[in-house]
Structure formats: structure tokens, C-alpha cells
Design a protein around this nucleic acid. Structure first.
Lengths: 204, 204
DNA sequence: GTCTATACTGGGATAGAC
DNA sequence: GTCTATCCCAGTATAGAC
């Protein structure tokens, strides 16, 4: 299942917004702006202008600015959990599964939905306590996918370090690519980058 | 040379502030607050209150709020470059040097100066273009230390992946520990964590 | 569902006394 | 070097018309 199909089925199930709906467009622009300037430095006027409405009109769709941030995060996790599950479904060995996960997470961060993923990583502190709990619960499902595979590799002896620690290290390493990796600007392809990560773990 | 001695010689050379000077205390409190709530959410009134003065008095020490952020970052890099160099000086092989670098960076992030390091990582976007250039120049010296060692390991065949990519991955992985690793709360010690990172790289 | 107008708040920064 | 007082602006959010 490719990413486009996944997205469509999530929209059909009302789990994420169609990106051409008013809500969808707003969330996409919000993700872009939050990533570019940060949540705090993005004003509701910026958000409104980006979708071509007045700032007052925003509050017809969301009660507060923070609710927009939360929505960006929730939809991002939902979408990416589905993408991850699909990416893994083809793989048979744990080695292949890990490669699929790494590749999919790099795609999530540096591809089209990357802006939203970056927001999830870097704007955590701007989320209220109440919202955090909600987002964390969704994130657990996502993390379980990784831990299963890493635990498998540990048992096989392919991995020397603790699966839990490795996952956290990979979270940091992969998220951080958003600050330096430019897929467009020649050099390293996303597949090449995946190879490098696998090589770094001594699993190639 | 231990961290305390390094700090004292840097203070003597006027490269960083003594932490009991007015400026030093302010920077320390600023680092703590910036890390805790983020730069944008920290008000000048918060900063002033933390050092026990009125908000107006802040501007006797720094012309703008952003100048405080820049000062936190500049002093952090200066201090940590010195710490890194000292940590490496004892090591002989490249393997030992890398372990020393990893250990020192983990200490920088999760130890006493950790708040300032975290600010350096997470508040980059809040820095103006002009200030960024200045900070980046300092950072280059620091990064060169890492690249030399990683290149050496690559030549020895101990490292499979590209040194440049590995350094960036490690930057992300090690910085990220600030979000989850709690040295105090039992379990994994900082040495143990270093072991895990080395094991993950297949270098143990 | 969007507009205009505006209320209200809190933030960064300044001035001048002490 | 700190205080008090205050300016000015930008930011979120609301109200009511269309």
C-alpha cells in the first residue's frame, strides 16, 4: 500500500483531514509555519493569511491556537503510524523490517509530511499538559512497532545494545536529519541515507 | 584537567563569565528557563525575577533579550570545546578518543551545563541570522574534533558509515537524551549510557 | 463560514531618579 | 547597577454583521 492510498483510507475513516478541506489546508499551512518559525513566533494572523482568511475566522475552526498545534500533532501521528505499519508489512526478516522502519521514518521527516513531523519533535514544550497526555497515548502505538523489531534483533544477536536505548538514539538521530539533510540538493539520496544508518548500526 | 579547572581558566581568560558574577548568574538562570519553557515563552520579567531584579534592570546588562540567548550559546560552546579537548587529551587510540567525546558530550548535555547545551540545540530558530553566523563559526572548531576522530576510525576500518553522516546522527542521538535520560533516577548511569552508544556503533 | 472592528492582555524596551 | 513608571506594540480572542 503506498502513502497516497493510506492517506485516502484514513480520510475515509475520518482519522485525518482531506488536505483540500478548509481544516486540512489550515493544518498543512500551520505545520509549515510552525516548523519554519516555531509555534510561538507564528501568529494567528500568519496562519489566517496563509490560508487566505482573516484572523478572526480561524476561531470558527479551532477554539484556540494551541488546539491547532495539537491537531497537527495528532493527525501526524495517526498518518505515520499507518505508514509505518504498511512499510513493515512487506518485510519478512527483522533486519528488513528495521530497514523499512528507518526508511519510512526518514521519509516521514524529510518528505511531504515532514513539516508536521518536525513540529511534533520540536514543539512539544508548547503543548499544554492536558494535550500532551492525549498525544502521548497515540505515540505509544507507534513506538511499539519499533521496539518489537529491535527486541527481535537483539535476540538474534544482531544488535548488541539495549533495544529501548537504541530506539531513543534513533529517534534523535533520525529527527535531527531535518536540520541538515536536504534531499533535493544532490549528494545523498534518501535510500543512501538509510544505508548509512543501517551501516552505522553494523547491520548492513 | 577536570571540568572545574577548565572553567576557572576560561574565566581567567575572560572567555566565559564567572557564575557568581551578575552576568554569570543571569546567564545560568536564562539557560535554565530557556530550556524549561523555551526562549519565546520566557519573558524578560521571568528572567529578572529569577535573579532577583526588576525587568528594566536587565537592559543594563544586555541590550535585547536575544542578546541574552546568544550569550548563553556562545559561552556554552566555548566551555564545551575546552572540555572536549581536555577529555580527548588523555586518550591515545581513536576508539578511546571517540569514547571520550561521547562521554563528554553526554556529560555536557545531561550534567551541570546541560541546560545551556539543550538551549543550543533547541532554540536555534530563535536566534537572528546575524547571531547565527557568529555562533556557527565557534561551532566549527568543536565539530572538527569529532570529524578527525571519526575519519581515523573509518580509515582503520572500524567504522563502516560515512564519518560526516555519523557525526550528524550522533549529534541528534546524544542531544535527544536530554528529553528522556534522567541520570538521577537510577537505572542507567552516564557511563552505562556511553557504553550503550559505543555498543550501538559496534565499537565495543 | 467569512468579514470587520475591537476588547483585552502581556511583552519588550526606555527614561530618569536614586 | 537597580528601581519605578510607563510607552508602545503585537498577540489572542470575541462580537455581531453579512
Amino acid at each position: 500500500m503506498n502513502q497516497e492510498k493510506i492517506l485516502q483510507s484514513l480520510i475515509a475513516d475520518n482519522l485525518v483531514s482531506a488536505s483540500d478541506s478548509a481544516r486540512g489546508r489550515l493544518l498543512r499551512e500551520a505545520a509549515r509555519l510552525f516548523r519554519e518559525k516555531g509555534y510561538e513566533r507564528t501568529t494567528v494572523r500568519d496562519l489566517a493569511a496563509a490560508v487566505g482568511i482573516q484572523s478572526g475566522s480561524l476561531f470558527h475552526h479551532f477554539r484556540t491556537k494551541e488546539e491547532i498545534l495539537k491537531a497537527v500533532m495528532v493527525e501526524t501521528i495517526r498518518l505515520n503510524t499507518a505508514v509505518m505499519q504498511a512499510a513493515m508489512s512487506k518485510a519478512t526478516s527483522n533486519r528488513e523490517k528495521l530497514r523499512a522502519l528507518i526508511s519510512a521514518e526518514l521519509e516521514s521527516i524529510n518528505g511531504q509530511t515532514g513539516e508536521a513531523m518536525a513540529v511534533l519533535v520540536f514543539e512539544w514544550r508548547s503543548l499544554s499538559e492536558a494535550s500532551r497526555a492525549e498525544v502521548l497515548k497515540l505515540r505509544d502505538i507507534y513506538e511499539a512497532l519499533w521496539l518489537d523489531v529491535l527486541r527481535g534483533l537483539k535476540e538474534e544477536g544482531a544488535l548488541k545494545a539495549d533495544p529501548f536505548v537504541v530506539r531513543r538514539m534513533l529517534t534523535g538521530a533520525l529527527s535531527w536529519t531535518v536540520t541538515w539533510y536536504r534531499p533535493d540538493r544532490g549528494g545523498l539520496t534518501q535510500d543512501g541515507l538509510t544505508d548509512q544508518v543501517v551501516a552505522m548500526l553494523g547491520l548492513s
